[in-house]
Amino acid sequence: MPMPAWLLDPLAYTFMQRGLLAAVLVGIVCALVGTFVVLRGMAFLGDALPHAILPGVAAGYLLGGGARGPVLWGSLVAAVFTALGIGALTRGARIKEDSAIGIFFAGMFALGIALISSIRSYAVDLTHFLFGNVLGVTASDLWLIGGLGALVTLTLLAFYKEFMVLSFDTRLAATLRLPTNLLENMLLVLIALTIVIALQTVGIALMVAMLVTPAATASLLTHRLHWMMTVAAGVAAFSGVAGLYLSFYASIASGAAIVLVCTACFLLAWAFQAGRARRQAAG
């Protein structure tokens, strides 16, 4: 069966091919990491952390004169630093976790905006960082997404059962003598790396949706962790593709389109789940 023209036409453009590949890869990595973000109730961190890397992005931009490499390294350093910083601050227990995240998040974001506002044409560039531009992905970006994404995915799979125990019952992890602090820090670093590779796709402002929405959708439909991760990855990959087609035909921002499809998937799953619960209650 030949594919309809409306599916094939966009593929004639290199930027669409790259964009689709990037959206699918980033979506899958975000969904896998996001499963643990959802299960551990870290959605606020998932929103805060992307914002907190802005000064890294800005510093890289300023130092590198707009080149891609320094921006990337800047965001990487800022992401890991902030993730571990929030981890250390909340373990001190003198400040509540959400307050610690809020303080770090707003302070770092403000520093980022201050740095960017010192660049003359800042309005345009800020929008780019805030909302991403998956259609501007280059071949070297794809290599980076693939490499870091593989690293994150393999680490998650290698420590799958340890992360599962840690997320389900921290005290069990402690009595089984798993290194809980190390595992928690590893998870934070994995989230930080994921944010760096997703920066180009959905940008800072919508990143939390990529981390939370596919995983939350999957949690409504599944009862085992590996299925939750599989379904979340599927939802994210589908949203990436459908979102880019939506963006292509409706001429709307690519990141926003991806997140809108994600949200629609969640609402469908929610309605399905609510309907099933009602049927069970009735019969």
Partner: peptide
């Protein structure tokens, strides 16, 4: 203290005891 919505089955929870 337990998150009962956590996506695990009874046998998954028992298997957690085997992790170390």
């Amino acid at each position: 203290e337990v998150d009962w919505r956590f996506p695990v089955t009874v046998q998954d929870v028992v298997m957690m005891g085997r992790v170390s």
